[in-house]
Design a protein around this nucleic acid. Structure first.
Lengths: 194, 194
DNA sequence: ACCTGAACACCGTTCAAGT
DNA sequence: ACCTGAACACCGTTCAAGT
């Protein structure tokens, strides 16, 4: 597109601008529409210019994934640990569904390598500890809750394009039902379901 | 590779042979190694010849996915419905882990379009009914159990390439723990965990 | 350090032709 | 109907060069 620049001239790119453009591209054309070449076009740059700010397409997507988790609401520090765990998973579900194209990629990658993913994982362990669950049992509970939350978000987002769709409301309350069953099994359940 | 054939000569291809070669290719080179061109090479054929037996690469993978589910053990008809549900999900988990490269694709696709997937879904509903769960509650339970099983299989298979790995045994008993929590919550639990 | 130009080594899929 | 030959419209990534 932009042939007015010659080698050596800056285009004003930055890592942040590249990630932002990637989010725009996904929003407009879906995950399959996110190619290095389309991304370069959007930024008015040749494809290889991106590699000055991003190590690879895989790395770019990894950063995108972890950035999404920054939007998850952290529970208050002093509150009820059971409610905190419920709200944390529930907020994660909502945040994931706000970026439906990225959800299927989550379980494919190792679930917890980015900064935000690790931080959320530690918050979970802290709240589990406060609820009386520690050691290996806490890590078991943590994995089950993560799988349920990301898995159900993936299920919901893939069902969105289906002909005989369920209403998102129904799938959300389905997610909540499972979450309560799990919290009860782990031993941190509130008295009543919603 | 094979330049000895001229247009019009048969190569002896069939849908079954294509699917079989696809499985071999995945086993040797992983899912990313499954390309139409590599598949054609393996069969001694030009890439476009495959389109006489398969509608697209996506369709091929869909068939591969559903074929895997044919290996799942069906529960005995007359037994305890709680045990049947447990064994069915447990067998599904094992079968999925026997094909780790295909697992991440499952949740990305609509979970239940193939023949075998639908058949297993109906078996679940039958056993839930026998356990006293019917109607919308049964479909809720069904979704939660499916998400847990496929999700945990995906988690386990992605953790297999990890440096600080957990033993597969540990992840399997982690899966079992979550499964028992869910069955208890649904209302079809056995008295004791494993 | 940041970008362009050009290229490498691939993809899935289609179209026309041959038997 | 089943295959080849050739091509279309793409990919991610690398290498050399320019400022």
């Amino acid at each position: 597109m932009n042939a007015s620049r010659i080698p050596g001239q800056r285009a004003g790119l930055s890592r942040g601008r590249v990630l932002g453009a990637a989010r725009e591209q996904i929003a407009e054309a879906g995950l399959e529409g996110l190619t290095m070449r389309a991304l370069a076009d959007r930024l008015g740059v040749t494809p290889n210019a991106l590699y000055s700010h991003v190590e690879s397409k895989t790395g770019l997507v990894d950063d995108l994934l972890d950035d999404v988790l920054a939007e998850v609401d952290e529970p208050a520090l002093g509150g009820d640990p059971r409610a905190a765990l419920h709200d944390l998973m529930s907020s994660t579900y909502d945040v994931l569904l706000a970026h439906p194209d990225l959800v299927p990629v989550y379980l494919a990658r190792q679930g917890a390598r980015g900064e935000n993913a690790q931080r959320l994982g530690e918050i979970m362990l802290t709240q589990l500890e406060r609820a009386g669950i520690g050691g290996p049992a806490a890590r078991e509970a943590q994995r089950v809750l993560i799988v349920h939350t990301i898995g159900f978000a993936a299920f919901t987002s893939s069902a969105a394009g289906d002909p005989r769709v369920l209403a998102p409301n129904e799938l959300r309350s389905n997610f909540e039902a499972g979450l309560h069953w799990l919290l009860a099994g782990i031993g941190v359940a509130t008295q009543a379901g919603p």
